[in-house]
């Protein structure tokens, strides 16, 4: 026995509410982030990820407040992402009670920001979030990364990018398949395998979970260290506990 694979529920939040989009659009309301986080923690979630999709300045203040409230009531690790652009943004989120921050667009805009952040705060709290879309098919699939919530193509190869980010000090990669996000068809495990086998840092798979077996497949086929899902938990299709029991039944070490 040793380190457990993690199950991480993700809260996409807009102006203080949990929402969930399908393929990055079509938003549905899924509750109060503090209540939702507490429920997940009680059900045995290993971490909680809070992605702030609020664009407005006022919304950011709400986010900081919400992060603080979650951190006062939920005693498992909390990752906050969305709009993290400066060392001050990171400081602010850590002070509010976040344990890690996820950096996406700002890393592409200036990769040395990741290096500076890891040097200042330590690799363990720097997660690089990557939105990847398949760009080439057989026999050797390739994936391209996108920024700005999946709207802007970059021409950058996903696997090379993740390697570079880990070299720069990223402590973890949050890898979202844009092709699968919101589809409920399961993770892109070729993408997961390609990235996870080429970086030394842990990889979290994201995008596409529709049934519990998809979570197990992320570990068994994708080789990832943690699996992230949103809608299957928000709409109470499954509890975290059920997800863990399913994974344990497939021979995966989990924290029960």
């Amino acid at each position: 026995m040793g380190l457990a694979r993690r199950i991480i529920p993700c809260l996409d939040c807009d102006n203080g509410r949990v929402v969930k989009g399908v393929r990055f659009v079509d938003i549905r309301d899924a509750g109060d982030p503090v209540e939702v986080s507490k429920r997940y923690c009680d059900e045995g979630a290993d971490e909680v990820t809070f992605l702030d999709i609020t664009a407005s300045h006022e919304g950011r203040a709400t986010t900081v407040e919400t992060v603080g409230e979650i951190a006062s009531q939920v005693f498992i690790p909390l990752t906050v992402g969305g709009g993290i652009r400066t060392l001050d943004d990171i400081r602010m989120m850590l002070n509010a009670g976040a344990d890690k921050v996820a950096i996406n667009t700002a890393a592409v805009f200036d990769p040395t920001f990741v290096r500076a952040a890891a040097e200042r705060f330590g690799s363990q709290c720097i997660v690089v979030a990557v939105d990847a879309k398949q760009a080439a098919g057989e026999p050797e699939p390739k994936w391209e990364i996108f920024t700005h919530g999946g709207r802007k193509p970059t021409g950058i190869d996903a696997v090379e990018w993740c390697q570079r980010m880990v070299d720069y000090g990223a402590g973890e990669i949050l890898l979202t398949s844009m092709d699968r996000d919101g589809t409920r068809e399961g993770f892109d495990n070729r993408l997961n395998r390609a990235v996870s086998s080429s970086v030394r840092a842990p990889v979290i798979a994201s995008g596409g979970v529709g049934v519990l077996e998809h979570l197990a497949a992320g570990v068994l086929q994708g080789g990832v260290d943690a699996v992230l899902a949103a809608s299957i938990f928000h709409f109470r299709q499954f509890t975290i506990r059920q997800a863990k029991e399913h994974m344990a039944g497939r021979g995966i070490e989990v924290r029960l």
Partner: peptide, 21 residues
């Protein structure tokens, strides 16, 4: 270490991140 492996020989990720006994 860069080449950290478990008892079965599988490569382990660094940082050691998550819930351990």
């Amino acid at each position: 270490g860069e080449e950290l492996r478990d008892a079965a020989g599988a490569r382990l990720k660094v940082p050691h991140m998550g819930w351990n006994e």
